[in-house]
Design a binder for these strands. Structure first.
Lengths: 204, 204, 204, 204
DNA sequence: CCTTAATCGAGACGGTACGTCATGTCTTGGG
DNA sequence: CCCAAGACATGACGTACCGTCTCGATTAAGG
């Protein structure tokens, strides 16, 4: 008998995957140009040269569409290994502050939507937060392994400190997270995590 | 002559200040109920029992209206002084995690708008960030003064760490910044800022 | 006490009656140009320089809008009185076949909708059928009074014969109800209604 | 040699004539249920369990499809011969008013479309008008032959009177052309066509 | 007291975008 | 080449808000 549990027999004309591309690309562009709040489905359809139906057939809401478009963005995942915490965090700082204006504008445009859409929040985490966190987590773990960083810390909290400060600076303070800022934060982190307190530091 | 440079002589019926109250209150409620994205001027007008004109006569945009409504919220400004960094930060943690669901929902509803409106960002800073930062900054400065915290740190960065981690948790991770979370973060901060590294820690 | 049963206190800005005019006029034009079936609300709005809301605020459906537009058309109501049935019906024939291309196209465009919309049917009756019927009924009654037409007929049926033949010709046969046709029908009617049968007409 | 001048050599799989049946039947049903205006090709396809392509492969428009579906309907063609005009017209009246609700609803649904489509008008004529007209024309001609009806009338006009009054009643007046109505009309016709005017009728 | 002028609630206005539906065509895989 | 299924661009649907603009009625302040 040939009754395998084949999932579903696809019937009818399949979705044209070229259109996925066109639509997400248009979404991407518009997100960078006008931001999430002013992005309209009609504009996406027009820009992509596509009917609105073709969009709604794939994503049921603006948030889902944007989530998919943003999901295409990828941050670099290579984890530096210079041998010192300062070196590693410095490379990460360099990577994060490396200008990629379009991606950054998309990100900023995205923040507006994150608060309300769990999908979007997940996408944002998977695409941006998690990769960044894991890079920091890795270099921190190595530093602990090397004895460079004390072993009694909760690395989860320590890891989040760097992305959190960047996010706070961008969103709340509305200032750029540039190289100088990142280097300074890295300095402070290295300071508190690794610097041996000089004897006699405490007043007496 | 009485020709002072008074801006404009107001003529005709003045704005009814009771309406300011009604409108902002309605805005407040709706912000908590449906969030910034779904808050409409028409709903505010209806809820406040007011014509749309009365709103636009006072605030020229949704963002400005929301900014004004949020500006009414105040966080507690009292700075604890228990004598130890751990004690002070613990009290701050307690205050921040003290449940005020309406205020919190308004805040989350606000985040969506921050990315696009400088006014709103300013309001958010003045109403939430700055008071919180200044409380942390004060207790940190006192701890440095007591010699409890090393003096070679940039307190600005250190100060922002706590609010940044809270903001990141709420917005990016979508998890509550509850008492347990805040206490844990405070623990870690106290650990790295004050704990004297035991001599010979690094040696194998 | 001045507590008259005043109907309703009108509140808010009243409907702009100029727009009624513009909208009905646009509807009228389009009805003549493309017919009922191809008439769209969007085209009416565009032609009238009006938002769709302004139309729906007044008429809740295409059928109602068209009914209102058609209700503006009026047929001439003057009833001829030449002294003879032939003379009177001849004048009516002349009036009906007098070319008014726009009105005629509107009428033809309307037929499509009549079958499905009671409002539209009523409007069609009030605007076209009833006035025409009453003209014919009047001249017939006068002819009966003069003894020109036999008195034992149901004038309601006789009256409808002329409009029915015209309608049938236009809709079912798709041919013009021109002067020649109308005169011919009038001839036949006069013949059967008034012509005294010659003695010995019957065979045998 | 088998080289007849056959127009085109049909190649590939021929149209499945069972589908013609299914499609026309579905069209028929829907026409009776929702009328021409609300009949959609998609609904026909769904009801017939057929792809839209199968419909468009056969009929190029909704009007043509409906025309084909209606063309299947047939009215009874038997012409009565009772020996008198009143008897013959009475039988015709009985036949026309014999209730066939589905056919009637299809007919009414059809009227909407007639005004715009010449094909549809032709179909309507061939299927309904002509058979009915020819029945009436036959009995009238026989009555003239018998000397029952005067010979100086244009039978074409007289013939159309009955169907025209029925059509007018259904479409314009929106009232049923039931047995009572038809009998009454027949009475009047018989009256004017055959009744000898009493001598001295005109005198006061 | 009586203008004058801007307020008030209500809601119409021209727009824009929404999300849905039907059009007629095209594209799958399977006879 | 047909067939069912269903995607495709197009375009209209009827609704909801936008921010502006009337309406008649109200409310101060200045003459």
């Amino acid at each position: 008998m040939t009754c395998e549990p084949e999932a579903v027999v696809p019937r009818g004309r399949p979705l044209d995957s070229n259109l996925d591309e066109e639509i997400l690309s248009a979404t991407h562009d518009l997100l960078a140009e006008v931001g999430y709040e002013r992005l309209t489905m009609e504009a996406v359809a027009a820009r992509a040269g596509v009917g609105k139906g073709a969009i709604y057939r794939r994503w049921s809401s603006r948030a889902q569409l944007v989530a998919a478009a943003v999901g295409r963005l990828r941050v670099r995942k290579d984890v530096p290994d210079t041998g010192t915490l300062r070196g590693d965090l410095g490379q990460i700082a360099a990577a994060w502050s490396e200008p990629n204006s379009k991606r950054d504008r998309v990100l900023v445009g995205l923040i507006a939507a994150i608060a309300y859409d769990e999908d979007l929040r997940r996408i944002h985490r998977e695409t941006f937060s998690d990769p960044r966190n894991s890079a920091v987590a890795t270099v921190l773990a190595r530093a602990v392994g090397r004895g460079e960083v004390r072993a009694d810390l909760d690395l989860e909290v320590v890891t989040r400190t760097l992305p959190a400060l960047v996010f706070y600076r961008l969103v709340v303070e509305g200032r750029p997270a540039d190289r100088a800022f990142l280097d300074h934060v890295v300095d402070q982190m290295v300071l508190v995590l690794t610097h041996p307190r000089p004897v006699g530091d405490r007043a007496g």
